[in-house]
Amino acid sequence: MSGLVNPTVARITLRATLSRKRALLFAIPAAVLIVLTLVLKATHAPSRAWPSHVLGTFGFSVLLPLTALIIGTSVLGAEVDDGSIVHLLATPVRRFSVVATKFGVATGLTIVFAAVPELIAALIAGGGSASPLGGDKVGLVSISTSQFATGLFVGALACSVIYNAVFVMVSVATTRAIAVGLLYVLVWETLLANFVSGVRLLSVSHYGLGIAGGFVTDPALQAGLGVLTSVVMGIIVTAAALLLAVSLLSSFTLKGEPA
């Protein structure tokens, strides 16, 4: 019987998502990250500063949310916008299972197109020594490549999950999901969360950084939140977003008279 994930919905979603032209965009942020890492690696002396900034700040508050935005809003939002969701909703499939499946597919794709590239970039950037103050040479902390890469990868996995829950919900809530999501990523995640410390408690990228911080003590990552706070907040935000998405989808309406 209908479990959490519906294989038919998953198959159709995967095909629909990958067959759209938008699918070409999925790989762009990842390509930028890897190229940037390669360039920095070639032009800079070994340092802790840039890998953490590029992979931590840029990775978690730009690469991951943008990839998740493109994917998360297309797995369900595209069908809601063009009305083909009616074919799916006119069946007894549980709405929770529809949302869970769409979310699962989006998270999987985001891991492939964003979290794995983070891992690759982290392995390229490598470990090294870091100073507790993020400046130079006073009280160096040594970080191995595997530590650094593990931390970033786990953080990126967490971000993939949480961001997609948020964007799947946004795509059911509004037909302007991309615009709303973009505004959220640019204003909230990249700007406010990095400059206003109070916002961190409600910032997905900081949950990712906080979780990464549990695997690698790298002050340059600027993890503002502890691991526990990050995990708990991440779970709360994910669950709340998904439940809201289920409730919105259950109340999906066809409106008005077509002219």
């Binding site: 067959s19 009305g83 083909s84 009616v86 006119a90």
Partner: peptide, 11 residues
């Protein structure tokens, strides 16, 4: 249910 909208999974 046969919805009016023409949108189906065209792929």
């Amino acid at each position: 249910l046969v919805p009016e909208r023409d949108s189906v999974y065209a792929f």
